[in-house]
Design a protein around this nucleic acid. Sequence first.
RNA 1: GGGAGCAUAGCUCAGCUGGUUCAGAGCAGCUGCCUUACAAGCAGCGGGUCCGCGGUUCGAAUCCGUGUGCUCCCA
Length: 882
Amino acid sequence: MELSKNFNPATAEVHWTQHWRAKRYFNSKPDHRQPFTVVIPPPNVTGVLHMGHTLNETVQDILVRKARMSGFNACWVPGSDHASIATEAKVVQMLEKEKGIHKADLSREEFLKYAFEWKDKYGGIIYNQIERLGCSVDWDRVTFTMDDHYYKAVIKVFIDLYEKGLIYRGARMINWDPSAKTALSDEEVEYKEVQGKLYHIRYPLENGGELVIATQRPETIMGDTAICVNPEDPRYANLQGAYALVPLINRRIPVIFDTYVDPAFGTGALKVTPAHDINDYNLGLKHNLEVVDTLNDDGTLSEAAQIYIGTDRFKARKLIVAELEEKGFLIKAEDYHTRVGYSQRTGVVVEPKISTQWFLKMREMAEPALNAVLSGDIRIHPGDKFLATYRYWLENVKDWCISRQLWWGQQIPAWYNSDGVCVVAADRAGAVKAFAEKGISVEESAVTQDADVLDTWFSSWLWPMEVFNGITEPDNEEFKYYYPTSVLVTGQDIIFFWVARMVMAGMEYQQERPFRDVYFTGMVRDKQGRKMSKSLGNSPDLLELIDKYGADAVRFGIMISSPAGNDLLFDESALEQGRNFNNKMWNAAKLIQLWKEKATDVAAPSGDAWAHRWFETRLMEVRVEVEQLLAQFRLSEALKTIYSLIWDDFCSWYLEWIKPGFGEPMSNSSLQQCIRFFESLVQLLHPYMPFITEEIYHALSERKDGDDLCMLQFPSVEVQVAALENNAARAVLAEGQLLKNIISGLRDARNKAQLKPKETVSLFIDSPDRDQYTAIRVILSRQVNAASVEFTGEAIAQSITAVIGKERFYLQTEQPLETGNQKEDLLKELEYLKGFLASVEKKLGNERFVSNAKPEIVEMERRKQQDAEGKIKVIEESLATM
RNA sequence: GGGAGCAUAGCUCAGCUGGUUCAGAGCAGCUGCCUUACAAGCAGCGGGUCCGCGGUUCGAAUCCGUGUGCUCCCA
């Protein structure tokens, strides 16, 4: 097979994607094997994959491919999420822009038709990206959170929880998004630090005098229903039973007393606006205050405000401040730092608002979810970094507002008769029955369904179950086989939204955790450390990156710069490193291809057998290491280890060691051994870089149908651990290290003596152990470009001297040389060793060290001492001859 | 205001249970090479008070306290 000059990622990606798909390698069916199940965190159907997704999907694919190659029946379920607010907003926008249609003019059914069309169009974009990245998902199992069975599951769960008394309807202070005109959960509000103003406003008292309050929101004064002061505050002790008048509208409101008010803050007098502030709301409940809601759903002032009706809240603030000032009510406005809540979905300032919504009681569900993690039943990675966050949230959880004033989503299965009596049932007929049970007789046509839909997270919390129909058909075989899933990979930012709630749902419906391990990845940031976001426009386009560098390089780049759980600064130079790595492996494959052409049955050179043994041992060593790293989810470290094994040990050392000399043939047996090693290497790397490894695997040998790398099973690790546990293995690794040190040292010596690479030398070795050179002598001579290698017992005059460990080397050249540099180097080394020896001797001279430290540590120090003494002796002798 | 985390080479970070694989990697830098797999490369080199201070210990980048500076989460 002829190999092209460079690896061509695009061709390989298309070819192997099709091949794997045609072979149905990634389609899973329950069988006798142990399952390894992963459900993808469903991306929003509106979006495109950003770098955060790329990191997530790559991590999942690595785990899934590794499991598939390790005897597991791997099943990775892809899908997407209907993202109710975000999608509805986009569809509304599209309809207005492209078709001039307003949502208000459409029926619910008509709107949903457009929404589904949108979903079909944009859902495909995400799936295409997942495929281009090389993700080994089971495409037969694609699930969407609005699929029919999924919809039914959500409704079923709602009804069930309602019947258990965990879901209730009530008027509460909620977060209102005036742009999307819907309620939000607490988790959907993002707080930002802003520079605001604190306005000091004068309220006249009914019986003369005045009271000054401080507020950040003067546009809400028309909703005031009391002024509150601290009962301990001497300034206001005389105000018992007093009434004040709200400026501009002259509403009469009582002065109330509560220790809630901090006398030191502002003026010590608080205006109470129960409809527009959560604390005021609670105060209002306590003191039985009237609630005056002065805002409309869209954020403009309502009739109840009496003035500026229909004006936007922020514009109204300016106008009211101006009027207050003009009429002498405004005393001053001072700068003030505060935090303001913004809607995560639409970005507008969230308005606290009293509203009748559906809630899910969380306390009962939180406990089993917390225990599942605290008991170790679910393991959170990395380490316990996020355990504290998880715990804190669950211990302080508040009821979950699950209704949204939208159309795109599962419509709440609650029904009302003309009197506003409410029942919960799956359908209209069921509702009539439910009314009948309450003793209310009503016609089907007279029943109206609740107009609202459920929060998207109220559907995605069922994800690990319902992708296998685990809610709709809890007894089905697939669900029993695949659930609980093995590992969930997601971002730390949705620990509450999603992870904790999935655990709740799993514990509630299966009395079992939804996943064994949770792996939290960090945030992807740009080079300047900013979070990647659409608004900043600093997130690169995934498909463009794949086109430019290849999917393998993208995967490599994002993994190599991704320490477990920490944020990573995304930099294209990491992708370049990945592309270069591709190139390196490709060239190694080309070299082997060349060897194949000139391979004969000649006996292998004497160094080859040793080189094979050495590399085989290194390979086993790395296999064991990688296995341990992966078990700890240290994927980045594992990749670095494999990278260095391939680039340094295999390409830079091993291939050079077995490379035939000038015009010499390649021995067939050596070549076959080398090919086997390369196969093992691409196998090890395959989970990280699937395309190039599969390509090289097939380039190395003709493969039978069905012999593909993605299904090649890893050898048992136990066997390798055992193989490493013997002296021969340890010895060959030590020899390899020695050889590398000597080669580097001699090359350095050559460089410092300014010898040209092509210039040959005669090498003389003065060693206490000449036997250790038997196997590596040939390799050594080639690697340092020595025409001859001989042993000597004494110094060679007029040569370059190098001392490496206890070994002394002399490089003899044609021309006489300058030895000043070497002497300096040796003196420097001598000085270091003497200092080192002194520190070791000091330690050993310390009575307490010898008696307290572990025996093996003391023993090691003794060896260090001897070692250093030996080296010093060798250097001193060398210096004496110079 | 409450909680969590981070600070190591010019940059981005490893460094698990204190002790020669303790001061590491990758980029960047410098020197020399277009050596018949690879210049997207090869060979070699330099570079750090492990944030400051105190403590525990025979021994601290590592454990504890504290100060400073950043980051995130929550109210």
